Simulated assay, not measured.
Amino acid sequence: MNNFNFHVPTSILFGEGQISHLPEALQTYGQNVLLVYGGGSIKKNGIYQKVMELLGTDFTVTELAGVEPNPRLETVIKGAELCRQENIGVILAVGGGSTIDCAKAIAAARYYDGNPWDFTQNRGLVGEAIPLVTILTMSATGSEMNGGAVITNLATNEKLGMGGQSLLPKVSILDPTYTYSVPAVQTAAGSADIFSHLIENYFSRNTSASVQDRIAEGIMKTVVNYTPIALATPTDYEARANLMWSSSLALNGLTGKGKEGTWSCHAIEHELSAFYDITHGIGLAIVTPRWMTHVLNEQTVGQFVEFAVNVFGISREGESFDIARQGIKALYDTFTSWGIPMTLPEVGIDDSKLRLMAEKAVEHSTIADAAFVPLSVDDVEAILKASF
C-alpha cells in the first residue's frame, strides 16, 4: 500500500429532516448566499421553497439557476461574476453532481483573475475559494464529499476535471427522501456512476491495498442490491439511503487512497459527453464492460476473478478466464436490468468521431502510461467500436 494523506473534513448531516440545520451551517460563513441549482426540479419537489423558508430574512440570497447536466464554462464565469458583484460569502449548491461541480468551479473562480478553464490545465491554480455548502438531490458523483469537479467547454468540445482541497464542501446535507422524485433513468445512471467510481479505484496496479478493495466490494454489492429496489419502489427509504451513502463513500478517497494509476473509463466517457452531451453515468455503463473485456489478460485475470467472486458471487471453481468473463457479463447484465441503454447508437452516437474521441481521451489523460492497463489511441478506438 502506498503512502497517502486522507483528510476529508466535510461535515455530513445525513437523514430525513436534516435540512433544518441549514441556517446554522451557512451562518458560520456569512449572510450573503449564492444559491446554485439546475433545471428547476427543486421547485417542483418543494426543496427550493423549504430552503427559502429556512433562510428567511436572515440571509440575502442571489440565485444562479439553470446549471447544465454537464456544467458549462460560461455558467461558471457567470456565477463567479455574481459572487464578486454581490459580495457572496458562501455558496449553497442544491442538486446533484453537476450542480455541485459547477459551484466548486465558481467558488475557485471568484478569486482567480484568469479564465476558470485554466483550472483544468493546472490544478495548482486553484487556491482560495468561497466556502461551499451542499444539499444533495441525486446519488451519483460523490461530489458532496470530495474536492473534485468536472466542467465542459463547448467551444473546444472538452470536458475536463479540476479540483483542490479548498473545494471540499464544508457541510453536506444528505436527505434520502430528496431522491424519491429522481426519474428511473437518472437513478440507474447515478448507480452506474457510483459503480464506475469504485471500479476505477478497484482495478489498480497496486494489488496490496486489501482494506480498500474489501470496502469497495462491499459498496458495489450494496449498489447491486439496492438499485433494483429503488427503481421498483422510488420511495423506499432504506434503498435510497444506502445508495446515497454509497455515492459519498465511493469517491471521498476511502477506496482510492494508497493505490496508484489513472482512471481509464472516465477518460474515455468524458469525450463522449464532450462531443455528444450524453448522461455521464449512461456513458460509463456502456464503456466499462467493454473496457474490462479489452484489458483482460494473463496479468489482470486474477483481479477480475476476485471481482467476479466477491461482488457477484460467482463460483471460484473453474478456469480463471471463464470466471473473469462471467463477472464482466454479470456487470453488463446488471446494467441492462436497470434499463440502461448499452450501445452507443442507442444514445445517439455514430462512428464518425470515434478516432477523434480516442485521440482526445489519450491527449487529455495519462491512460497511455499510468492506467491499470495502458491504452493507446488504437486501444480506445477498439473499446468504442466494441460499444456498438
Rank of each mutant, 00 (worst) to 15 (best):
Val211Ser: 08
Gly256Thr: 03
Ser247Tyr: 02
Gln212Arg: 06
Asn252Ser: 13
Thr262Lys: 00
Thr235Arg: 11
Gly253Asn: 10
Gly261His: 00
Gly281Cys: 11
Ala285Cys: 14
Tyr226Phe: 15
His270Lys: 14
Asn225Lys: 14
Glu271Met: 12
Leu243Phe: 07
Val211Leu: 15
Asn297His: 10
Trp245Gln: 13
Glu269Trp: 02
Gly256Ser: 13
Gly261Asp: 00
Asn225Ala: 14
Leu249Cys: 13
Ile229Asp: 03
Ala267Lys: 00
Ala239Tyr: 01
Val287Ala: 06
Leu249Asn: 10
Ala216Gln: 03
His294Arg: 13
Ser210Glu: 13
Glu260His: 06
Ala267Met: 00
His294Ala: 12
Leu272Met: 14
Thr300Trp: 07
Met292Asp: 04
Asp236Tyr: 08
Thr262Tyr: 00
Asn225Cys: 08
Glu271Ile: 03
Val295Arg: 00
Ile286Asp: 04
Leu249Phe: 11
Thr227Glu: 08
Val211Arg: 07
Leu249Gln: 05
Ala239Trp: 02
Thr279Val: 15
Ser273Arg: 02
Lys257Glu: 10
His270Asp: 03
Thr262Cys: 01
His294Tyr: 15
Leu249Asp: 01
Ala274Cys: 11
Ile215Met: 12
His266Arg: 06
Trp263Ser: 01
Ser246Glu: 04
Leu251Tyr: 07
Ser246Leu: 07
Gly258Cys: 09
Pro289Arg: 03
Val211Pro: 00
Pro234Phe: 08
Ser264Tyr: 00
Asn242Phe: 05
Pro228Val: 08
Glu298Arg: 12
Glu269Lys: 08
Gly218Trp: 07
Ile215Gln: 04
Glu298Asp: 15
Met220Gly: 01
Ser264Val: 04
Ile268Asn: 01
Ile278Met: 08
Ser264Ala: 14
Glu298Gly: 14
Glu271Tyr: 04
Met244Cys: 13
Leu251Ser: 13
Ser248Thr: 12
Pro234Ile: 12
Leu231Cys: 10
Thr288Asn: 14
Thr255Gly: 06
Tyr237Thr: 12
His294Phe: 15
Gly302Trp: 03
His270Ser: 06
Glu271Trp: 02
Val287Ser: 03
Asn225Pro: 00
Cys265Lys: 00
Thr279Cys: 06
Thr233Val: 12
Thr255Phe: 06
Gly261Tyr: 00
Lys259Asp: 02
Val295Gln: 04
Ser248Met: 15
Asp277His: 15
Trp245Val: 13
Ile219Ala: 09
Ile278Leu: 11
Gln212Pro: 02
Val301Thr: 09
His266Lys: 10
Met244His: 03
Thr235Asn: 15
Gly258Met: 09
Thr235Glu: 15
Arg240Leu: 11
Gln299His: 13
Leu296Ala: 11
